Amino acid sequence: MKRLDAPIARTYSGAASAAGPLLFVRSTRRAKLGEWVRIGGEGQEERRGQVVDVGTEITVIQVFEDTLGLKPADAAITLAGETATTVVGKDLLGRALSGTGEPLDGLPPSIGEARLPIWGAPINPVRRQHPSDFIETGVSAIDGMNTLVRGQKLPVFSAPGLPGVELAADIVENARPARGEPFAVVFAAIGITERETQIFVSRFRESEVMERTVLFLNQASDPTIERLLTPRVALTTAEHLAYTHGIHVLVVMADITHYAEALREIAAAREEIPGRRGFPGYMYTDLASLFERAGVLKGGKGSVTQLPVVSLPDDDMTHPIPDLTGYITE
């Protein structure tokens, strides 16, 4: 028997126009924000995309792959009826994955325990337990002077030329709970280079921490939209480990500046009215939707702790990215 709630795919012939990685499609019925899209072209491989804006007349689609050679008027555009989801489960521990969860370690894709939507909601403040337990990072300046507490969100502000991402990797290797409880680390690298990707994968494989670590590695050469998906995929994985399996999970995200710049790039392509320094006016809300997913639930056994790394553009602490990050996480 066919499920009544099964996703319904709809195919449209041709786009009204294109601008860089964006396609503008008219008269799309029941399009959903974040819906997966398949784009076909004559004699070309199928491309992936996602709905990034839904209007009464125009739907905007962000294409993941290069659009070189794609003729908008001749494209076959299929809205899959499904929003962004990711496979979650304990079998992801020890894996190196792309920013959208595709294997980078040569192993087959994970079957997982469930497939969950990545657009999770912040924790209800009424259900939060007051953070009180210590997580050791192995960095004396943090452990001794700015202690990381379980369920907390503690940003690390770095400047150009300083080893912010390397510090994040050190914390991934050395972090541990105070009393030996079940512990895991989810590392989301956002907008890193190919060289950094190889360094991280080889470094963690050679250490003993890989078996309790999940790596999500988004490279600078990957589509811009993937930089917005990577931290959400990582947080969804962490939440499943924490609240289903009772594991205390530390989520290290580096670099949030790359995430915010991707947000600005897509907003500019959509011709949105810019806010401070060209960033969209909703950036505060968007960053809060990430940071507020940290916490400890009352009566629960697991927890999600966040350690986002933020590079200061031009060493400016008043820049919108560190400024808003500080407001949200203080």
Rank of each mutant, 00 (worst) to 15 (best):
G112R: 01
L241F: 08
V139E: 13
I328R: 02
L22N: 03
L263A: 03
R176Y: 09
D66W: 02
L79W: 05
V156I: 15
D53Q: 12
A168K: 02
I247M: 15
S311A: 15
H245C: 04
G89I: 15
E136I: 10
L79K: 07
F204M: 15
S202V: 03
A268P: 11
N146M: 12
S110C: 15
D74Q: 08
V156T: 07
G112I: 00
V310S: 12
E57R: 10
E102C: 12
I247A: 08
I39A: 05
A175L: 07
A260Y: 01
G106L: 11
R127G: 10
A73V: 14
P274A: 04
T318S: 06
L22E: 01
R179P: 04
L79V: 13
D170M: 08
A18L: 07
F291S: 00
V52G: 07
L324N: 14
Q152G: 02
V126R: 09
T236A: 11
L263D: 05
E35C: 03
D255M: 01
R3G: 11
D286G: 07
P182N: 05
T100H: 05
D74N: 11
V25A: 11
W36Y: 09
D316P: 02
T28W: 09
G14C: 07
A18P: 01
G144A: 14
L70A: 08
L70C: 08
I123S: 11
R30H: 12
Y284Q: 06
T224F: 00
K153F: 00
G69R: 12
E82R: 07
G120D: 01
H248C: 09
T305H: 08
G246H: 03
Y282A: 05
N146G: 03
Y243T: 00
K153L: 04
D91C: 12
I135N: 01
M253P: 05
G55P: 12
H319T: 09
L92G: 01
G112N: 05
L104H: 09
F200T: 15
T197I: 08
E226G: 00
E136P: 02
T325F: 01
P177H: 14
F291H: 00
K71Y: 12
I142N: 00
K2S: 08
V60E: 04
G120C: 01
V37D: 01
V87I: 15
G101D: 04
L70N: 13
T285C: 01
E265W: 05
T100W: 04
H258W: 09
R264W: 04
Y282W: 11
D316E: 08
K32Q: 14
P21N: 03
